[in-house]
Each structure stands twice: as structure tokens, then as C-alpha cells.
Amino acid sequence: MEALNAIVALSNFVLVPAIAYGSQLALGALGVTLIYGILRFSNFAHGDTMAFGTMVAILFTWWLQSMGVSLGPLPTALLALPAAIAVTALLLLGTDRLVYRFYRAQKAVPVIMVIASFGVMLVLNGVVRLIIGPGDQRFADGERFIITALDFRRMTGLDEGLAIKTTQGLTLVTAVIVVAALFWFLNRTRTGKSMRAFSDNEDLALLSGINPERVVAITWIIVAGLAVIAGVLYGLDKSFKPFTYFQLLLPVFASAIVGGLGNPLGAIVGGYIIAFSEVGLTYAWKKVLGYLMPESLAPDGLVQLLSTDYKFAVSFVILVLVLLFRPTGLFRGKAV
């Protein structure tokens, strides 16, 4: 019984939140890694792309809500996703046209593209704050929980409750569908294969008649989809605040690098590694240990390894360790 309680408490406070957060990071990291693989630079504007896309989704959600449209138990924001992705895709294609394409044609060194992405980041940041303001926005509606802690206790008779938020379940389901679709696209379709070919060997791709501009455009569209979905899921699960999205850059990049930049599978694994470490190290283990250890040994402190404010430190330390001991990432990215 004690052990069961410990497992439930662990699931409630660590496993479930970390799986949801990890899925969100994985989707974000996939966007970063695709851009790196195809356009060969680290896109620092990615956090703000997520913010922009989420903002568009929020605006559409509000509009739908004002029209009385709802999805019942599911958040209305899901209905806003396609429109938000379309708008964000147009934005990304526009920035590519106005900013990045020039440097691509020049064959500029990647670092110039990175600096250009700083500029795009600042502009997007300004646009988002101009339109929706810097404050917190909540836009989740529908059923809040799949199962509440109270129901769970009643059902199982355990002392500990397990609450699963709708947004957490939704995150996992969506992430699985999106990742499956992405891998199907990359491995099974002609266009997807041409993207992998382009990422692998640009010159040979040109010799095979693959059109680089088409590959780049499709990449941006996919990245728009990934960024908006990641951003909306994160916003539903927590809340939307432009600055938080900027700060997501660090764990998102850490996920992509830990997995190996340019490697989609690595990005997913990296996302979960970062999320589990972050949640695990900042969780107060007192409760779980209390169930597992005999009374006399039960810890009196919180057994929290790090204060939650240091969660950045976790992604950072993992990042540094990986860079030191395996610079190409766990899955051999294309880092040069």
C-alpha cells in the first residue's frame, strides 16, 4: 500500500507533469533541429515564433468563444490551431523571404544567420507585445481534468490522489500524433526524403535536381506547425506569457543539442531527458520518500535538490555535460 502510494505520488508530481512538459519541449526542439538541419543555423527566434503562433491561436480562440463555438470538454484552442499555423507559416515564409534568403544566396557563414535571427527575435517580441501585451493570458476552457485527485482517491481507496489535467493528456496525444505524422512524412514521402537528402548533402541534392528553395519553404511551414502546436500546448498547460516563451529557448535548445542538432529522433529524446531532469531535480521528494522509507528514517526536510527557480541550471548542466563528453549529441547530430 505504501509503495502504491509512493508510485501514485511520484506519477502525480513528477511523471505526468514531466511527460507533458517533455512532449512540449520535444515539439519545440524538433522545430529548432529541422531548421538547423536544412538551413544550417541555430534559430534564436524560435521561442518568439512559438509565442507569435500561440498569440494568433489565442486571438482566434477568443473570436471563436465570442461566437459561442466550443469543443465541449476539449479546449476551443484546438479549433484555432489550423488558422494559427497558417498565419505563422506565412510569417515565417515572409521572414525567410525578407531576411534569411539574402544570406543564403550570399552563402554567408552561419553565425551571420544567427545574428539575423536575433533581429527577427526582437521584432517578433515587439510585435507580440504590441498586439497582446506582455501580461499573462489564460485561454484554456473545456473540462479541466481527465481525472481529479479526489476521484482517483475515491476510486482506488489510496491516500494519494492522481490528477491528470485535460491539457496534459491532450499534450501527450497530440505530440504522439504530430511526431508520428512528421516521421511518416520524412521517411515515407518523396518530399520528406528530399528534405533529409538536402540536410545530408546539399550539393548532391542540387545535382539530383532537388529545388533548395522548395525544401526551405516546406521546412518553414513544418516548423510553423511544430512551433504553434508546441506553444499552444504549453500555453494551455501553464499559461501564455511572451517572456516565458523567450525563456523556453534555453531548454528547447538544450533538448535539441543533447539529442544531436539536426537529428529529429534526438530532439524528442532530448526533450524528455531535459524535462524529467528539470522536474525531478526541482521536486520535493519528501512525500515519496516518506512512503518508501520506514518511519524512523523518513526525511524531515523537503528533500528538494534544487529550488524551482534554478530549473534553467538543470538544462544547462546537462547541456554542458553532453557537450563536453559527446559534442555531437546522443544521437550523432550533424554538428560540424
Binding site: F44, P110, V111, F316, V320
Partner: peptide
């Protein structure tokens, strides 16, 4: 490489 140094310094400053 330079992007990694960038991420590393970004991380340090947040810490």
C-alpha cells in the same frame, strides 16, 4: 563551435 558557446553563455547568464 560558436552556436554552442552562444547557448552556453545564454544559460550561464540566466543562472
Amino acid at each position: 563551435r560558436s552556436d554552442y558557446l552562444a547557448i552556453a553563455t545564454l544559460g550561464i547568464s540566466e543562472i
